[in-house]
């Protein structure tokens, strides 16, 4: 009997998806934590100091490479699995009553993920651009990631895109969070219900906080 190598097997690939997913979930927590300093309403002092730290600390820079690798691996693997899976039912059912056996967002992870990918491109282009890095490199000049964020989110089109993306993220996490642990084999009578509850809290709270910050900026609660 021929044996497969771990990462060419369907389960091995799924485990890579779940590990990168969990990595991205932890990253999101750091990101929302930094953004939340905007709510301090201190004219961006703390936020800019945080942005400065993120840009200059060597450990963070190294982890940034890992973060990009994590994103790329997660995206490439899931899209690969998605397109493979799509070929597995050449004749479609005439009638499918899927709402009786599963949640729409569980069935729509590829769509939600693709929306997030589009947002990610817009987001990186807007906030992690050469412009920002350039300002940093020129040292003495005041780094002003804060003004950049405020200006961007006072634009209603940006705000709508931003909030839309976090709604997609919320549903993506609602499935992805507990799913990552199931894939790793962490299914336990005592702990799975806790993971599921944590997943719901995380999926609502973290994207919700991003949105609250954006709305606070738009409605000028922060200056």
């Amino acid at each position: 009997m021929s044996k497969e190598s771990f990462f060419s097997s369907s389960i091995g690939r799924k485990i890579a998806v779940s590990l990168t997913g969990i990595f991205l979930i932890t990253f999101l927590l750091v990101h929302v934590g930094l953004n939340a300093t905007i709510l301090l309403n201190d004219g961006g002092e703390t936020f800019n100091a945080g942005a400065h730290f993120m840009a200059y600390n060597w450990l963070i820079r190294v982890m940034e490479v890992g973060l990009f690798a994590g994103f790329i691996l997660h995206i490439v693997l899931t899209l690969m699995l998605y397109f493979q899976n799509r070929t597995k039912r050449p004749v479609a059912y005439a009638k499918v009553d899927a709402k009786e056996n599963s949640r729409w967002y569980s069935r729509s992870m590829a769509l939600l993920g693709s929306l997030l990918l589009i947002f990610l491109v817009i987001h990186i282009n807007q906030f992690w651009s050469d412009k920002l890095v350039h300002v940093y490199i020129n040292g003495e000049q005041q780094i002003d990631a804060y003004t950049m964020v405020i200006e961007a989110l006072r634009n209603p089109i940006n705000l709508v895109i931003y909030i839309g993306a976090f709604i997609a993220l919320s549903y993506h996490l609602l499935h992805g969070f507990p799913s990552a642990f199931q894939t790793l084999g962490w299914n336990h009578k005592k702990y799975t219900p806790i993971i599921k509850k944590l997943g719901v809290i995380y999926s609502v709270f973290v994207p919700g906080l991003f949105c609250i910050i954006a709305l606070a900026i738009y409605f000028e609660f922060v200056q």
């Binding site: 799924k14 699995l81 899976n85 056996n101 599963s102 949640r103 569980s106 499935h175 507990p178």
Partner: peptide, 12 residues
């Protein structure tokens, strides 16, 4: 066979 994405329709 396709790969599992933990949709849960099978169990249901």
């Amino acid at each position: 066979f396709g790969s599992c994405t933990n949709i849960g329709a099978c169990e249901a």
